[in-house]
Each structure stands twice: as structure tokens, then as C-alpha cells.
Design a protein around this nucleic acid. Structure first.
Length: 472
RNA sequence: GGCUGGGUGGCAGAGUGGUUAUGCAGCGGACUGCAACUCCGUUAACGCCGGUUCGAUUCCGACCUCAGCCUCCA
């Protein structure tokens, strides 16, 4: 069977392009992670989840995929937060790094192969800056080292803006130590009370963009296949990063496919720490299951913006319930979950789901395909066909990082933040009592028990095999 | 102002030059003691104005409008 081609919308060309890795034996991906100075919000979870799905897809098809995603642990906001807490930046950044990794792990994100941090790569950063100076793309000035933007003829090619446009914007910082207002800092001096490292230009700290250039080079090489991140990083972060790497590396390619995820909105506005309209993953997990959050994130195509709302979560919950409801009906014979499907050969994954994902990671279409698989499974009466359909559904679930729970548990464990519900034993006892009442024809008594359970958040489902329950 | 991407049924969200997206919700029916679950059926959409076309939600142009980036940001 011929596999569908993988197609990506490449920010660099502005078009969809067929994905052809530089080396099919070893695919490389780098994704920009967050700057950690507080708990991350659900918007930070989107790239983590999206590129997790991408690596799951790629790993079904290529023998080796190296996935690197950094955490920025040196930055002026970190400095400010640490200073106001009276702690050092490492303590603070380590604490929030761990929290970030826990939060995205809760969203079903598998850890990247490498999670590099800027402060562990100071030597590599200094090396790269020296190279840029040697090649006349950067210069030292008053303790700073600056990248000279006009020295890169391709500058602006990623974010599609001309140097004139940037002057029109007139928001670039003008400073005496800059040759050109658009020049940006590679290294900046630290005062005594600021964190810093010794360098050929005095004690200082790296600028924001250089860490990614240095860490990509170290962990993946001069040219990588895929670079991902939020669309808000396209300019200036990725433009600057690309300029540095192009100019420092002999191989001029750097990134072959740039992928940018859209922003999460809250109301009509982008969710953003500086605006203050954020919902932390941690906070959301108090009220919603992590799988519902993941479903909600996947309900929109990654490059579009997605409006986060209670209604979105309610719909995600209901949709996920329906997939699990189907699984619950076949679960008793063999309670598999999607995590049992990791090792399948690529042709064993459901074609409709795979094809949707191959089309620029069209997760809404993939979810639609999942619901169609689930409907097929429910309609089938043949047990063998039902089990086969169940396996297809779970295999699709693996690609999306969903359906990893046992269906029975999914319905009986309830959602976080549920009010205290009766224990399973108490529920079973009431179900037995109701059964006896029904056998006696005491329907009023039976209904009273059912209503009582419903009031406690327990819904009953009768079938020929007996009565089962779920938390709602 | 420049650049980028949008405006699809009650909501979310795919897609297509002429044929059912899908999910949630709604409606009718089956099942059920009644429900729930499930099944069957069903309502309903393509911002506005022109153009191309036998035919446009889908292509082209103008307009209106929304969001993002141009400063830290996933």
C-alpha cells in the first residue's frame, strides 16, 4: 500500500510543500519551548501537543526521529522574578521547568529526546558569537555584541518583511552602541547583581535568540528538517535565529520546513501573560481531565487560532465520551488502550486518520475520522470485526495521543473536581437494590434510586447484560 | 501604516467548481416499565458586492470585518 505523502505549510515559502527529509534515515525536529518564570498556560501546551502528534506520525514512518525542544532558563523576566523572590535564577527556573514538564506530560506529551537549556550551553553560545564576529556578521560594542542585520542579505525572508517595513514600524530600539537600529543583541553585559558568565566581552549573558541557534547546532546539526514554534515567534525570534545560523554555519540551509502554530484566544484576544488573560494548565487540570484538554487543543488545526472557552471544553468532553462509550462496549473482551498500539507497523494505522494527519496535521479531520471509525465499530455486530475496528480506533488514538485510558476507568473515575461521589461499592449496592425493586415491579422505588444516584452525579445505563454506571 | 491568516448551519470545525463532512446540541422514530446508552431518520451554512462559468460556498477583483505579528510572548 502506498502511503500518503506528508505535506506541511512551510512558513518560509508560505505554501504547502511535500515533506522530504534531508536524510530519511534520520529526521530532525526542533521546537521552541517556553521561558519559565511562572506556571505555563494552556497556550504553551499547544505546540507541545501539536508537535507531539507530529513526532508520533513521523515515527511510524521514519526509522529515527530526533526531537529536541528547549526551555529558556535565562531571561530578564526570570531575573526579575527571581530577584523579587530573593532566590537565584537557577532555583526558580528549575522549579518552573519541572512544572512545565509535568504539565505537558499530563497532556499526554511524550518527552522530547533532548530538552536543552540555555545556561548549559554558554560555551557553545560564545563559540557561535565568535564565529559571527569573525565572519563580520557581528561586532562588539560597549560590552554588548550585536548581530549586524544589514550583513545578512536574506534577513526578513522568513517573516516576509523588508528592512524598510521595519523602519516604518519604528519600534526597534535605537541605541548608541548599535550600528543599525535593527541590529539585535547576541550578548549583553550584566551588572554585579545580575546573573552572568565570563566571556571575551566581559561578564554578561546571552541574548534570547542565540541560544536556539547554538542548541540546534549542537544537538541536531547545521541543517534541520523541521523547526516549530508559536506564530508569535516568527518575528523577531525565528527571523533572528535563522539569520544567526545562516551566517555562522557553512551550510546555509538551517531549517527546511518552518511550522508555526496559531495562538489560543480567550474571548477575542490572544492568551498572553503580558495581557494577563491566561489559564494555567495546572489550574485547568483541577476541573478538567487532561485528556479533555488535549482533545480540545486538537479540535482545531494547529496553524489556525483557537478560541479557548468553557463551551469548547464541554464539547471536547462530550465528543471524547462518545469515543470511549464505544470502546466500553467492547472493552470487556480485551481491555486494550491506545498505548498498546505504539509498535504497530505504519500500514496498520487507520488510513483515514493517517491521511488527515499527513495533510498538514489536520487534527480536526483526523478526529472526524476517529468518530467514523467509532461509529463503524458500534454498528458492527460481528465480534471479530468489532475487535478489529476497536484496534483501528485505538491505533488512531495512539497517533493523536488520545484513548490511552481503560474505557471502564474513564467512566467510573470521573473528572477532577467532582464533588464527593458515592463509592463504587455503594453504587453497586444501590444498583442491586434497584434491580430487586424492578423485579418486584416497584418501578417507583427503582426510579427513586436512579434519581438519587443521578443527583450524586452517577448515571445508570441498563442493558441485557445488566446495569452499568458512569460519573457525569 | 506594513506583513500574515481568517469570516461556513445553534456552537465547534473540515472540505469541495455541480453529490452526506464530523462532533456537540435540536427534532422525529426504534429500543426501554420509564429513562439513560445505542440504533435509524432528520432540520439547518457557506460575510457583502461584482466578475468568470452551463453552474461558485469553492476561482478572480473590490469592499466590510476579525485576529496575529511589527516590543516580551507558544
Amino acid at each position: 500500500m502506498t502511503q500518503a505523502e506528508i505535506v506541511f505549510h512551510n512558513t518560509l515559502s508560505g505554501k504547502k510543500e511535500t515533506f522530504v527529509p534531508a536524510n530519511p534515515e534520520h529526521v530532525s525536529i526542533y521546537v521552541c519551548g517556553p521561558t519559565v518564570y511562572s506556571f505555563v498556560h494552556i497556550g504553551n501546551g499547544r505546540p507541545a501537543v501539536v508537535f507531539d502528534v507530529l513526532t508520533r506520525l513521523l515515527r511510524t514512518r521514519y526509522p529515527k526521529v530526533s526531537y529536541v525542544s528547549n526551555i529558556t532558563d535565562i531571561d530578564d523576566k526570570i531575573n526579575a522574578a527571581a530577584a523579587s523572590n530573593g532566590e537565584d535564577i537557577k532555583t526558580l527556573a528549575d522549579r518552573y521547568s519541572r512544572a512545565y514538564q509535568e504539565d505537558v506530560a499530563a497532556l499526554g506529551v511524550r518527552p522530547p529526546d533532548v530538552v536543552p537549556k540555555a545556561t548549559h550551553h554558554i560555551a557553545e553560545i560564545i563559540d557561535m558569537i565568535e564565529t559571527l564576529i569573525e565572519k563580520d556578521h557581528a561586532y562588539a560594542s560597549e560590552g554588548h555584541v550585536l548581530f549586524h542585520v544589514p550583513s545578512d542579505p536574506e534577513y526578513g525572508s522568513l517573516s516576509k518583511r523588508s528592512l524598510e517595513d521595519m523602519i516604518d514600524g519604528a519600534r526597534v530600539e535605537v541605541a548608541g552602541y548599535k550600528k543599525d537600529p535593527k541590529d539585535f543583541v547576541l550578548w549583553k553585559p550584566s551588572t554585579e547583581d545580575q546573573p552572568g558568565w565570563d566571556s571575551p566581552w566581559g561578564r554578561g549573558r546571552p541574548g534570547w535568540h542565540i541560544e536556539c541557534s547554538a542548541m540546534v547546532k549542537k544537538h541536531l546539526g547545521d541543517t534541520i528538517d523541521i523547526h516549530g514554534g508559536g506564530s508569535d515567534l516568527t518575528f523577531p525570534h525565528h527571523e533572528n535565529e535563522a539569520a544567526q545560523s545562516r551566517c555562522a554555519n557553512d551550510d546555509s540551509g538551517y531549517v527546511r520546513y518552518w511550522l508555526h502554530n496559531g495562538m489560543l484566544n480567550l474571548g477575542t484576544e490572544k492568551m498572553s501573560k503580558s495581557v494577563g488573560n491566561v489559564l494555567t494548565i495546572r489550574g485547568l487540570l483541577e476541573k478538567h481531565s487532561s485528556e479533555v484538554l488535549r482533545y480540545a487543543l486538537l479540535s482545531g488545526q494547529y496553524s489556525s487560532s483557537l478560541t479557548w472557552s468553557d463551551d469548547l471544553l464541554a464539547q471536547a468532553r462530550a465528543s471524547l465520551d462518545s469515543l470511549y462509550q464505544g470502546l466500553r462496549d467492547v472493552a470487556d473482551t480485551n481491555p486494550l488502550t491506545s498505548t498498546d498500539m505504539e509498535k504497530l507497523a505504519q500500514e496498520e494505522f487507520p488510513e483515514t486518520v493517517v491521511n488527515a494527519l499527513c495533510d498538514d496535521l489536520n487534527t480536526p479531520k483526523a478526529l472526524a475520522a476517529m468518530h467514523e471509525l467509532a461509529a463503524d465499530m458500534r454498528r458492527t455486530t460481528d465480534e471479530a470485526a468489532k475487535a478489529a475496528a476497536r484496534n483501528q480506533l485505538l491505533a488512531g488514538g495512539w497517533l493523536l495521543g488520545l484513548l490511552y485510558q481503560n474505557a471502564e476507568d474513564y467512566f467510573t473515575q470521573g473528572q477532577p473536581g467532582d464533588s464527593a461521589a458515592p463509592t463504587a461499592d455503594a453504587i453497586e449496592a444501590l444498583i442491586a437494590e434497584r434491580k430487586a425493586a424492578r423485579a418486584d415491579g416497584d418501578y417507583a422505588g427503582a426510579d427513586r434510586i436512579r434519581d438519587e444516584l443521578l443527583a450524586a452525579g452517577i448515571e445508570l445505563e441498563d442493558s441485557r447484560e445488566g446495569t452499568r454506571w458512569r460519573k457525569i
